Simulated assay, not measured.
Amino acid sequence: MIPKRLHVVITGEVGAGLSFVVRRDHVAIILAVTLSTLTALAVGTWLGIGFFQERNSLALKTSLQADALKELSENFEQNLKQQLAEQQNSWHAKEDAYQAQLQHLKEEKESIICRYEEEIASADVSTALKISGLLAELELERQEKQDLLEKTAVRLDERSRMIESVMSRIGVDVKVDRKNRANTSGRGGPFIAINEQYSENLLNRSDKYLKTIKKMPLGYPMRGKVTSNFGRRSDPFNNRPAFHAGIDLKGTIGQKIKATADGVIETSSYERNGFGHYVIVRHGNGYETLFGHMSKRLVKQGERVQRGQVIGLMGNTGRSTGPHLHYEVRYKGKSINPIKYLSVAKLSFTVPE
C-alpha cells in the first residue's frame, strides 16, 4: 500500500543531496506537469530545428538570387554597351554616307550651273532674234485687234441706230449723245483710234437697248386681219357708242397665238360675259398685254414666257360675235393703241456684217 506521504531524495555522485516530501495525491499532478513540460520542450526543440533549417534554406536561396541578379546586371550592362557601340558605329556610317551624297550633289549642282551658263551664253543671239520676232507678232496682233475693234464699233453703232429708229417709231424717248452724232462736215482735229473703252460703251448701249426691246410688245401675236381698231366704236351687241381698249384680229378656231415680248403670266383665267379665256402678260418697264376670247389657254399664272412662245389658241369664248383675238397693249396701267407696236413688224433694215 502506497503511504499518503512520499519522501523523495535526489542525490548526485558528489555534493549534497536534495530531498522533499510529496503527498500521494499530488504525484499524478507532478507527473502530468513533468510530462507536459517534457512534451513542450520536445515540440519546441523540433520547431526550433525546423525554423533554423528554413532560415538556412532561405538564406541560401537569397544568396543564389543575389548572385543571379548580379550576373544578370553585369550581362545587361555588357549587352547595352555593345548595342550602343553598334548603334554609334551605324550612325557614323550613315553620317559619312550623307556627307558623301551631299558632296556629290554640290558637285552636280556646280556642274549644272556651269552647263546652263554656257548654254545661256551661246543662246543670246538666238534669244534676241526670237524676242524680235515675238515683238513683230505682237505688233501685228495689236493692229489686227485695232481693226477688229473699229469694225465692231461700226457694227454696234449701226445696230444701235437701228434699235433707236425702232424705239423712236413707237414713241419711246431715246437719249442719244448728240456730240457723237453731229454732221461730219466742217470738222477736223487729230485722228484718235477707236479704243476698247469706246467699243465697250457701244456694247453696253446696245445691250441696254436690246434688254428694253425684249420687254416691249412688238409685232403681231398672230396672222390675221384687223377687224376693229383701238378707240371709239359702235358696240357689236347693242350698237351703242363704246370705247375699244385694244384691237380685234380675225382668225380661225385653233390658230396659234404668241407672246409679243418676254414676260411673266400675271393672269390666266376665264370670264363668261367678258374676255372668255384670256391671258395677261406682265413684261416689265410698265408694259402689259392682254389676249382675249381664246378657245384654250396654254400657260399658267406665274409662268415665264418669251417672245414668240405660243400662249393660247384662237377661239370665240366670252362676249364675242365670232372667232377673233382681242389684243391690248397697256403702259403703266393705261391702254394704248397697239397699231404703232404692230407696225414695227413691217420695218426693214440692213444690218452690217
Rank of each mutant, 00 (worst) to 15 (best):
L313Y: 01
L31Q: 13
G133A: 13
E288A: 12
N204T: 03
V351N: 02
A242C: 12
K145T: 12
S234N: 11
E119M: 02
E141W: 11
A59G: 10
A123M: 06
Q88P: 05
P221K: 08
K215R: 13
G333D: 10
H7F: 13
T45N: 03
E74R: 13
L38W: 14
A121R: 07
Q197M: 06
S228T: 02
V344L: 06
S348T: 14
A128R: 03
G15P: 05
A245Y: 13
S122G: 10
Q99H: 10
D96K: 15
R187E: 14
V14L: 03
G254Q: 00
T267V: 15
F243V: 15
G315S: 00
T34R: 12
Y341L: 07
K300H: 12
E353S: 11
E288N: 13
L18P: 01
G318V: 10
R232F: 09
N183G: 04
F243I: 02
E139Y: 08
S168E: 13
T152Y: 06
V22T: 03
R142D: 02
G318A: 09
V176I: 13
E95P: 05
I112L: 15
G12L: 00
Q88K: 14
E328C: 07
K151T: 14
N204G: 12
Q309A: 01
V279R: 03
S295H: 01
A242D: 13
T289M: 10
G48M: 08
L35Y: 14
K70T: 13
E95M: 11
T350G: 09
R142T: 09
G17F: 04
N201Q: 05
P221A: 01
E95I: 12
M294C: 02
H104Q: 14
A40G: 00
G15T: 08
A245Q: 13
E77D: 06
K70H: 00
W91N: 03
D173I: 06
K346S: 15
I339D: 07
V9F: 03
E266A: 10
N337G: 04
A121T: 05
V351Y: 13
V299M: 05
E139Q: 15
M167C: 03
V264W: 12
I280E: 09
L140I: 03
N239F: 12
I280N: 04
R307Y: 01
I112K: 11
G246R: 01
E137Y: 06
T11H: 00
S295D: 01
P338H: 06
A85D: 15
T34Q: 00
G263V: 07
L298E: 08
L35C: 07
H324V: 03
